[in-house]
Each structure stands twice: as structure tokens, then as C-alpha cells.
């Protein structure tokens, strides 16, 4: 006779998915709640830096594209919050944890979008890095998370392609436009690499997450994939690579790269990025301004229920 824990590990080892009503170790559940809700918060907070440029997009076409992309991010947040809720937590509590700073979101969104080229760099590099991670997570062991990732990856390709198309237009444009593209690349390249998290040796949650197959590839392996795939893309744009130590390593079959400024990484995670305060304040404000809608829905439901009870008593 197998114990619940043995049965759980048997499923994991057999590449079977864990579904909401299955027995699971409490730490597995908590680990998933942390990771999926953090992912959801990132999608929603990520709407802000891009939303900043919707009213200033240089053409109606670019504006419609950007609006659609930001709308997608809201949708992705919804898929992920719903997946988290299958673990028995309330969405209101998840949001409260993000607003209080107890729960994190991807620190890349604490960087400001200073120019229009940043919108291109975000689609290309930030969504590009997210895709590398999310493709891997399609094989995560938790069923609802895996299915949300599959749906998100399907939609995400448009995000990266519109960003890169925008970068082509700028990089192949006037000298001023090209300089703007280079500047955006310089500012977003390193933070995009940081999105994969600390080196494997320093990663707090990695080992257990790999055993439980919540994560399928390590931070450094995923980062390497992104570094390799981005090199020809930078070359095609005719821009300078921001990493001066980048060098092809024939033996490894990968690019060797310069070291990330980890002090900056931890600084931003710990709340000292350019926009940390602004992002959370904005989220709280939007949430509070929408409170009357939620209150009205609750009041309406209470009235409807009272009416039904009354009818039932009269009958």
C-alpha cells in the first residue's frame, strides 16, 4: 500500500499531472501558490509600463496593437489567478499580499518606459524572455498551471513579434530613431536577463521546485537559451550588443557572457527600483476606485437572493 506522499511522487515521476483534488504535500501547494500568484501579479503590473504609451503611440495602427497587447496581459493575469484559486486561496487575499509587498512580481516592471523604443524593447526582450520561461512551464507538474501556460504561450508570440517589428522600424530608420532603439536595448537587455532569477546555486526555491517538476529547467539554462537566441536578433537590427564580454564558445556550443549586476537585481527586488512605489500605488488606487462596482454587485446579489427566499416562502 502506497502512502499519499509516495503516490504523489509516483505521479510526478511518471510525468503525470497533479490535479486540484489530488493529495499534495502542503509545501508543494504553498510553493505553487507563491509562484503562480507572483506570475499573475507580474502580468497585471506589467500593464502599467506599456499602458504609459498608449495615448502617445505614433500611429493608430501602433496604438491599436499596443492596446491589444496590454489587454492580453490583463487576460493572462486572469488565467493565472484562476489557476491559483484552484489551490484553495481567495483572489482578494492574493491581491492584498501583492499590495502590501508581501508577494512579489517580476522586478523588470519596476523600470520606467522612457521612450517609444522601450515599447519595442519590452515586446522583443521582456516578452521574449517570458516566452522562454513559459514554454518550459507548459510541462509543469500542476495541471491548471500547465494548461494556463499553454494558452498564454499561444497568445504571446504576437507580443514578441510586434515588439521586434517596432525595433526594425526604428533601427532601420533615421539616425535619431536608431539611437533611440540602441538606448532602449542598452537599458532593457540586462534587466531582461535578470528575469530568469538568481544563479542556480543562489536560487532559494529551485531545488525543491525541480524535484517536484514545478520548474522544468533551471534559471541558468533558461537564461542561456535567451542569450543565444537574442544574438542574431541584435545583429539583424544592426545594433551594438550591450554585453561587451559576449563570446561564442565552440566547446560548449553556447555564448559566454558577462556577469549580471546582481546588486542592482536585489536592490530592485527589495523595493528600490525606479518605479516600485509608483506601480503598487497605482494598483491600489485603481483597485479602490473600482470598489463601488464590486460593492454594487454584492448588493445586487444580496437583493436577488432575498427576493428568491421571499418567493419561496410565499409559495
Amino acid at each position: 500500500m502506497m502512502t499519499p506522499e509516495q503516490n504523489f511522487m509516483r505521479k510526478i515521476e511518471a510525468e503525470e499531472k497533479i490535479e486540484p483534488k489530488d493529495w499534495m504535500p502542503e509545501a508543494y501547494r504553498q510553493n505553487l501558490i507563491r509562484q503562480i500568484s507572483q506570475h499573475a501579479h507580474s502580468e497585471v503590473i506589467g500593464m502599467q509600463p506599456e499602458g504609459n504609451w498608449i495615448t502617445r503611440a505614433p500611429s493608430l495602427r501602433r496604438k491599436a496593437v499596443l492596446l491589444s497587447k496590454v489587454q492580453d496581459e490583463g487576460g493572462h493575469g486572469l488565467y493565472l489567478y484562476s489557476a491559483t484559486e484552484t489551490l484553495g486561496v481567495k483572489r482578494a487575499d492574493l491581491i492584498a499580499a501583492m499590495q502590501s509587498g508581501e508577494a512579489k512580481y517580476a522586478s523588470i516592471f519596476n523600470y520606467p518606459t522612457q521612450t517609444w523604443a522601450d515599447i519595442g524593447a519590452i515586446g522583443w526582450l521582456v516578452d521574449g524572455a517570458a516566452i522562454v520561461n513559459q514554454v518550459s512551464l507548459q510541462r509543469t507538474s500542476y495541471g491548471p498551471y500547465s494548461r494556463a501556460m499553454i494558452r498564454i504561450c499561444k497568445e504571446e508570440s504576437f507580443h514578441q513579434r510586434q515588439g521586434y517589428e517596432l525595433m526594425i522600424a526604428l533601427a532601420h530608420g533615421s539616425p535619431a530613431q536608431k539611437a533611440m532603439a540602441q538606448d532602449a536595448l542598452n537599458r532593457f537587455y540586462w534587466p531582461a536577463l535578470m528575469m530568469f532569477g538568481p544563479h542556480d546555486a543562489e536560487s532559494a526555491h529551485s531545488a525543491k521546485s525541480m524535484t517536484w517538476k514545478i520548474k522544468r529547467e533551471t534559471n541558468d539554462d533558461l537564461r542561456q537559451k535567451f542569450i543565444d537566441q537574442t544574438v542574431p536578433q541584435i545583429e539583424f537590427l544592426g545594433l551594438e550588443h550591450p554585453d561587451k564580454d559576449l563570446k561564442w564558445n565552440a566547446e560548449r556550443g553556447h555564448y559566454d557572457s558577462g556577469e549580471i549586476d546582481w546588486q542592482e537585481f536585489y536592490n530592485v527586488i527589495n523595493g528600490n527600483g525606479h518605479c516600485n512605489r509608483q506601480r503598487v500605488e497605482h494598483h491600489i488606487r485603481a483597485h479602490e476606485e473600482g470598489a463601488w462596482v464590486r460593492d454594487a454587485m454584492t448588493a445586487y446579489n444580496a437583493k436577488q437572493q432575498a427576493k428568491t427566499t421571499e418567493q419561496r416562502q410565499a409559495a
Binding site: 495602427r61 508570440s157 504576437f158 521586434y164 539583424f236
Partner: peptide
């Protein structure tokens, strides 16, 4: 009327078309 929501709407040169 929103074809730009599809990845195929964006024509990229062959060299970088694998995204």
C-alpha cells in the same frame, strides 16, 4: 477587425522569423 492580434500579422525577415 483585429488581425493584429495574430502572430502571423507581423511579417519578419527569414533570418529572425523563428520567434
Amino acid at each position: 477587425d483585429k488581425p493584429y492580434r495574430h502572430a502571423t500579422y507581423y511579417q519578419l525577415p527569414e533570418a529572425v522569423n523563428n520567434m
